[in-house]
Write a protein that binds this DNA or RNA. Structure first.
Lengths: 345, 345
DNA sequence: CTGTTAGCGCCTTCAG
DNA sequence: CTGAAGGCGCTAACAG
């Protein structure tokens, strides 16, 4: 008798059940159940006695069993993202959690690594685990497998991309408007040759941000020139290379517009390799950068709050879960703002 | 028909049960159960038929019900952090999830905002929801409430801080060694007056990083001077102010050691406010900074992998969960490396 | 106001 | 190899 601690402790209480509490009090489990849920149908005095005993014993109900019988909501939301290490997604998660906690729900996490097959598995697993709904940052280009019909009716909200092949709610960033505004600002400052460091056209975000760029140019009567446009996977090395290529043209751009954080960083690296004599190149980009004020480069960014995207998604989800009648699919767009980080000093 | 879809679809299948599948096949639910779990005790031909029907119907078992009866593991891990928006914690989460997924487990999230009361609630909620174990980044200074005894026996692993008042496993960063090594490097470069921008002594991490600084100085026969030491909550503004204060001393430090990312950023802001004529100040700090190469300041950082911390934590957790006999509480320390970001160009 | 009966969906146990 | 009985912990639905 020893190891583990068979000391004189008051029983580590493997796992109390409602009946244990009830027996100690000489009442039926139902009484305990009612006291715990505080829904009435029980005398004040009895309730007090029960709650005192519950407190004393440290009893906590088993939510899994509760949910099984009542069939009610599990107060569980599945959040499926590509990669939590990306601050965009971790902030999105913060927003989702914030709203969930307010209604007593918890978040269950799933990462896909941008693999549509992994997404399917993760989603299926979350549904098996009884989530009330899913917030999904989609990986593939078709979302038919996210139809609630195929998921026990579990509601789904897409984040950062519109649904394709399925009618569900979604929350989006104003990619188009943000990009357009950034480009307009560069134009307002007199730039006429503006390079675009973009994302693949197959991505919604990539396509929208390009569209904003193109529209702003068009408004200014400037044609989009192939040689000023690069569209690749967001990767700082590729972005740097693309920027250097453009800047080496006989008529190089006088400004660059980067379609996301990775492209902005690549552009910054390219710019810092220029010699002091060369003409300056203006830079604008999507996504804010924390240390912008420490870089010796003026930078204009399209800023927005990823947490707000998460809050909006979770809100739509709860509304839909609790809607007796089905609502029309809704689409919420989170606005962007243009922020100038002027050259310091 | 139209709206909503009252068309001729094959029933959206509210929620199939094992019996539905069984009835369609004219077998008992047990047969379906056995086929699904693939544990044998069933004929090959029967299993095939069952699985085919399951596939056809798109039936998925209800894991909550499964766990209720079998009492086995839920394959659910609770992760409790202070704030997911902090990249340290989101990377930790990535590490935890990575290990969990390998054993078919999922992560349930809880944020505390560094509030010990919130931590208690979150932990209790996760336990009620039947997690197999918890990875907790502790908020308070005493962890007695995290004793598995009080949590239905749910195992706990502490991350980024050692247990106080309770015997559980933990994973730590080598705060002491990393800080010591950084300080040693500054000393090796000839610095004798080294300022320390630190965290509150009440934090484990704060105290350990200070200890490393103090030890390195002691080794070099240099006393720790009050006026070169600042210890406050990690906040860039406070750090900047503290750094400016030190640099304004009659005998200012020639180097600064920042105890975390926030302090490093504050120090960088302080340094950039100096005029070109003033003597340069060296800077070293805990935590790497992505754009270090774009700052025009040489920077030495103590780098480590937060995801590794998460992987280690989850691994300890599963080992303990599956250990038939209780193991001794273990402590894993993740190493740090010193990285130089030389002045570019 | 309180207790009893039954059963959520699945699995353990024991027959056949 | 398959099925029937029973119950995990809790709560609807009905009695009293």
């Amino acid at each position: 008798m020893s190891a583990g601690g068979v000391g004189g402790r008051p029983e580590p209480e493997q796992s109390l059940t409602m009946r244990d509490v009830a027996e100690r009090l000489g009442v039926s489990p139902m009484t305990v159940s009612r006291a715990l849920r505080g829904q009435g149908g029980i005398g004040d005095e009895t309730r007090r006695r029960v709650l005192a005993e519950v407190e004393a014993l440290g009893y906590r109900p088993n939510r899994l069993a509760r949910g099984l019988r009542s069939g009610g909501p599990t107060e569980l939301v599945g959040l499926v993202v590509t990669n939590l290490a990306n601050p965009f997604y971790s902030q999105l998660a913060v927003g989702v959690e914030e709203i969930c906690v307010r209604s007593g729900a918890r978040v269950m996490l799933g990462s896909t690594g941008e693999d549509p097959a992994a997404e399917r598995e993760v989603v299926a697993d979350l549904v098996e685990r009884g989530v009330d709904g899913l917030v999904v940052v989609p990986s593939g280009h078709d979302h038919a497998h996210l139809a609630p019909d195929r998921l026990r009716g579990t509601p789904v909200v897409l984040a950062a991309g519109p649904p394709v092949g399925v009618d569900v709610d979604c929350v989006l960033v104003d990619d188009f408007g943000g990009s357009r505004d950034a480009c307009r600002r560069l134009l307002a400052r007199g730039h006429r040759r503006i390079g675009f460091l973009g994302l693949p056209p197959s991505l919604w975000t990539g396509s929208e941000r390009f569209r904003g760029y193109a529209l702003a140019l068009e408004e200014a009567g400037i044609p989009v020139a192939e040689r000023y446009v690069s569209r690749h996977r967001g990767d700082t090395a590729l972005a740097e290379e693309a920027a250097l290529g453009m800047l080496a043209l006989p008529d190089p751009p006088t400004a660059l517009l980067a379609a996301n954080n990775r492209n902005t960083v690549g552009a910054l690296r390219a710019l810092r390799r220029r010699s002091p004599g060369e003409p300056p190149v203006a830079l604008a980009g999507f996504d804010d950068i924390e240390l912008a004020d420490l870089l010796n480069v003026p930078l204009t960014v399209v800023s927005y709050d990823p947490a707000e995207l998460g809050r909006a998604a979770a809100t739509l989800l709860f509304e839909r879960r609790d809607a007796p009648a089905a609502l029309q699919p809704r689409r919420v767009t989170v606005p962007t703002t243009l922020v100038d980080h002027p050259t310091p000093r």
